[in-house]
Lab assay of single mutants.
Amino acid sequence: MLDDRARMEAAKKEKVEQILAEFQLQEEDLKKVMRRMQKEMDRGLRLETHEEASVKMLPTYVRSTPEGSEVGDFLSLDLGGTNFRVMLVKVGEGEEGQWSVKTKHQMYSIPEDAMTGTAEMLFDYISECISDFLDKHQMKHKKLPLGFTFSFPVRHEDIDKGILLNWTKGFKASGAEGNNVVGLLRDAIKRRGDFEMDVVAMVNDTVATMISCYYEDHQCEVGMIVGTGCNACYMEEMQNVELVEGDEGRMCVNTEWGAFGDSGELDEFLLEYDRLVDESSANPGQQLYEKLIGGKYMGELVRLVLLRLVDENLLFHGEASEQLRTRGAFETRFVSQVESDTGDRKQIYNILSTLGLRPSTTDCDIVRRACESVSTRAAHMCSAGLAGVINRMRESRSEDVMRITVGVDGSVYKLHPSFKERFHASVRRLTPSCEITFIESEEGSGRGAALVSAVACKKACMLGQ
């Protein structure tokens, strides 16, 4: 009897593995994704193909990295998701002549009506938060230079001027797309009239992360975010950046690689679950690469896999709870928690219980395998993109072996128990001629924006502006 049951459990697990095998990517698959990513990057950089390229390769006008001589107080704003952060950054000489960066910050959550109302409502709310922060720190009387981390696709015309191309991540505030974001912020500050600010720089969160990590390690020339969304930036040779005049030196390019796949480059790798996630998203047909990796989508992918296993009578005796059938019910943090389970399955059992399920031991094991399959594919897909960037940098610099540091931020990278190990191992397999160091950014977005502002202020002083 026991043997029969054991055989049935083994057969069930084997069927589960057959279904989950769809998520496995072979090294040849990853090399294919990497080569296609490089081709799209090239198209994004070139003037004649930029418009139709899915990977936009947006110039950021960040050319210099901090040298350690900029000092002063800077205000930093960070808008990239449902939370908005205001930070005071003091850049100065530390002990023994070292450079020191001290920060104080406060988080504000953005109400739904500000995210989806008008641009005026959104930026009025942001300036209200700045006003509140300055009151708390008794700094209303000071006109501070301000660095703005704005983590949406922007076409820069200068370091302090950028046109919002399109909202992502659930934002829909009308009247912002096609307009200068810094102008919208300046107008809102003017409307309030109770404080003055000098907006000197606007950067993407990947750029802010790279600059913040450069402060720790001067070989950091790539910034990457794996959180709600997924994106990367890197220092490109100016001669390859056709959208900006000049051939000397390097400029940081914001790849906006989340949109890779929007022209069909990933079609052969998309599964039924991916198509369902895409169809029910706020932007169907867009940001397809990001939807395979980002935390906004990972939990939902797992939920759809679990429903398939229920329908195949391989999980929960073929019956799903009402909660499990509800879109968004299986949160991405559950994926991390399930994979963090120590082996007694308590954590998995508790999560499934909150979803109205009474799982068996085998159910718990199957749910864990589903989570591992989805998150491992995410790590491997992400590795193909980064390997594409790094191999490109090595080739354009004609280096036999390139040493490089990548600064990384984002909740999936930082909080998932195995993502970074799987990701690092896969990147290294795909970049055999590179020695890569990964560092995690601390308060990256805010500190990085302030350091970019410090560079901009120093330049302005040198130019006598």
Rank of each mutant, 00 (worst) to 15 (best):
K13V: 11
A10V: 10
Q337E: 12
A370K: 02
L2A: 07
E443Y: 13
D113K: 14
Q347R: 12
G356N: 10
K104N: 07
I225A: 00
A201W: 03
L2N: 15
R46F: 10
G356E: 12
K32W: 06
H105C: 04
A11P: 01
L266G: 03
K102R: 08
M393N: 03
S76Q: 03
W257P: 02
L306M: 11
T437M: 11
K190F: 09
G264K: 14
G223C: 02
V374R: 00
D363Q: 15
Q239P: 15
E128R: 07
V401W: 08
K56A: 11
L134T: 05
K140A: 04
E440I: 14
L463S: 13
M298W: 03
F23P: 04
D400N: 13
K102Q: 14
E242Y: 09
A173L: 02
S418L: 14
G183N: 09
P66C: 12
A119E: 05
M298I: 06
K102P: 04
A119F: 01
F334W: 14
S151A: 02
A387H: 04
E300F: 02
G356F: 07
N283K: 14
E339F: 02
Q26I: 08
N391T: 11
G178P: 00
G44A: 07
R403S: 11
L314M: 13
T228K: 01
C220I: 14
Q98Y: 03
A208Y: 01
I211S: 15
D344P: 12
G227Q: 00
A6Q: 08
G249I: 05
T431F: 06
D311Y: 06
T342I: 09
E339M: 07
G94M: 13
S445D: 00
M115G: 02
H317Q: 15
E242V: 07
E17S: 12
Q24G: 12
G407C: 08
H137C: 13
T255E: 08
D124P: 01
G249Q: 14
Q219R: 14
R358W: 06
K31L: 14
L352C: 06
E319G: 14
I126W: 00
E268C: 12
M34E: 13
H156E: 03
P59H: 02
F23V: 10
Q98E: 10
L307E: 12
C371H: 02
V389C: 13
T342K: 12
K161I: 15
R345S: 10
L415D: 02
E440A: 11
T437A: 13
K39C: 10
M139R: 11
V408A: 09
E319Q: 15
S418Q: 13
S131A: 03
L415P: 09
E339Q: 09
Q106S: 11
R192S: 04
T60L: 02
T255W: 00
R43W: 09
A119N: 01
E319H: 15
L58E: 01
L185R: 00
E248K: 08
K143Q: 05
L164V: 01
I163W: 02
M235Q: 15
E112R: 09
A425G: 11
H141M: 04
L271E: 02
T149W: 04
V182T: 07
A454Q: 05
L243F: 07
L301D: 04
E440R: 13
K104F: 11
D135H: 09
T103E: 13
V302Q: 15
L144R: 13
I159Q: 03
L292H: 12
L430V: 06
C220V: 14
T431Q: 12
L79T: 05
E435P: 11
Q106C: 08
A21Q: 14
K31A: 11
M139G: 05
L304D: 06
Y413K: 01
K56S: 08
R345E: 11
T431H: 05
E443G: 11
G227C: 04
Q323C: 10
F84D: 04
L30H: 09
I211M: 14
K346T: 12
I439R: 08
S441E: 15
D365T: 09
L314G: 09
T103M: 05
S445C: 00
G170T: 02
L430Y: 05
P111M: 06
I189S: 01
I366P: 03
R369N: 11
E40M: 07
P153D: 03
L315I: 04
C382G: 07
V408P: 04
R275Q: 15
E236P: 02
D274V: 05
V55S: 03
D29P: 08
A329K: 14
E443Q: 15
G170W: 02
G175A: 00
G97L: 12
E245Y: 09
A387Y: 00
P66N: 14
Y234P: 03
V452I: 12
A379K: 07
G407T: 10
I351V: 10
E372Q: 04
E256K: 01
V406W: 00
T437W: 13
T116G: 07
D205E: 00
D42W: 13
N391Y: 04
E112K: 08
R63P: 12
D113N: 07
T376E: 13
K140H: 01
G223T: 07
S127D: 01
R325A: 14
I110V: 05
V335L: 13
K346C: 10
S360V: 11
P153S: 05
T116I: 09
H50T: 06
T354S: 12
G227N: 08
E442M: 15
A449K: 05
R369I: 09
L122C: 04
F171Q: 04
H416R: 05
E399V: 08
F423T: 13
D400P: 04
A201E: 04
N180G: 01
N283W: 13
A259S: 07
I348H: 10
R429L: 11
P417Y: 13
D42A: 11
Q287T: 04
S375A: 08
G44N: 08
R325M: 09
Y215K: 04
R308P: 08
V401S: 10
T431L: 10
E256L: 01
V412P: 13
P145G: 15
R377A: 00
F152M: 02
L324G: 05
H416F: 11
Q138C: 02
E443K: 07
G97M: 10
A320Q: 02
V55T: 06
T326H: 13
G410K: 06
K90A: 14
L266K: 10
G318P: 15
S373G: 10
S411K: 04
L185M: 06
A370R: 04
E245D: 11
